[in-house]
């Protein structure tokens, strides 16, 4: 990179904002404590005081983290276009291909409405079906909002566990689907689709536009999820102080073996974004739910969504969709049991 980047207007704006971000982020705890203890003069240790302290500290913290990371992810994603990912995956051997596809699933821009064009583009250009599925499993399940919220509310260990187990499920489930040779259950018209031969010239995107894409990502994603984050943390703060400890233990605890498959089944039709589900799950854990069960529930809600299945029905026949749900569901179940067993 050369000095040219400093001429980018959007880069200059980003550089200006960064110190303010650091200043606010580093002073959240003292400011919160001052506000609660001195300005409001509330009694330390009381249920409501601590609930409010939790909320006033956690909500801006999570939002600030979202803004920063989504900005960088937005810039990063401008380099990982769907077209490049497809090129990287073309003609790859199955297992290596599955690993690459799951990894690229994290960084390639993806939303449920881009699932069909991606699927067509991949399958038509010779990416194996199983490899395509590794991508389709990882992309929605391991998204930046889920990972940031897990980091903010649970710490980096849990966030890392989520990413690694999510990757493992995407790789193995995709590999199994590839081994089963299910091409017969792909709608025949998929193979008749003609692919782009006049796609956009990449040189149209310069550095200034990439930074702008970072800002646009922040505006779009934070604008969409802030309300869920606020509600989730508010519910979390409330339950934190007022619901008895171990309330969830009998329902989602370790000793009830069926809690893992049950939470997966409940999770499939529940369609919520990560922003809404993670704060609630963090409260479930605090009230006695086990980590494995909570993890399984979260993965099922975020990774297996009914609307996405409905969209995929256009290119996949029903038996393949059911196989897909079955295999991913089993993978999530193994993760749930494993973590209940270890911790």
């Amino acid at each position: 990179m050369n000095l040219q980047i400093f001429k980018s207007r959007n880069f200059q704006i980003a550089l200006l904002i960064l110190p303010f971000w650091c200043l606010i982020y580093n002073n959240l705890q003292p400011v919160t404590d001052r506000l609660i203890d001195s300005v409001f003069g509330m009694t330390k240790g009381a249920h409501f005081t601590e609930a409010l302290r939790f909320f006033i500290f956690e909500f801006p913290k999570v939002i600030l983290l979202l803004v920063l990371i989504i900005f960088f992810v937005g810039i990063l994603r401008s380099y990982f276009t769907a077209e490049r990912t497809r090129k990287a995956l073309e003609g790859k051997k199955t297992f290596t291909g599955n690993v690459m596809a799951a990894g690229l699933g994290i960084v390639t821009p993806f939303c449920s409405c881009s699932a069909i064009p991606l699927f067509l583009g991949f399958v038509e250009s010779g990416v194996p079906l199983g490899v395509t599925f590794s991508f389709l499993i990882a992309a929605p399940m391991i998204n930046e909002v889920a990972v940031i919220l897990l980091y903010g509310l649970f710490g980096w260990r849990t966030a890392l566990v989520y990413v690694i187990t999510g990757l493992a499920i995407a790789i193995i489930a995709g590999w199994v689907i590839g081994k089963l040779k299910l091409e017969k259950w792909v709608e025949p018209w998929v193979y008749e689709t003609l692919l782009a031969n006049s796609d956009m010239d990449e040189s149209r995107i310069n550095f200034d536009i990439r930074i702008k894409m970072g800002f646009e990502a922040v505006k779009e994603i934070v604008g969409k999820v802030w309300l869920y984050v606020m509600l989730g943390i508010a519910i979390g703060a409330g339950v934190h102080g007022f619901v008895p400890e171990d309330f969830m233990a009998s329902l989602m605890g370790k000793s009830t073996w069926y809690s893992v498959p049950l939470s997966i089944l409940i999770g499939i039709p529940l369609y919520s974004n990560a922003a809404g589900i993670v704060p609630i799950v963090s409260v479930l854990i605090e009230k006695g739910a086990s980590l494995g069960t909570a993890l399984a529930f979260m993965m099922s809600v975020i990774g297996l969504s009914l609307p996405e299945m409905v969209i995929l029905r256009k290119v996949l026949k029903m038996p393949l969709i059911l196989t897909f749900i079955g295999i991913v569901g089993c993978g999530i179940m193994v993760v749930g049991f494993l973590f209940n067993f270890i911790f």
Partner: peptide, 20 residues
């Protein structure tokens, strides 16, 4: 979708005089 795929696999896209 088959018309879209002839031009690109990333949506939404803006096409001016046949060029993305």
């Amino acid at each position: 979708i088959t018309e879209i795929m002839k031009l690109t696999m990333t949506t939404p896209a803006l096409v001016v005089d046949g060029k993305v």
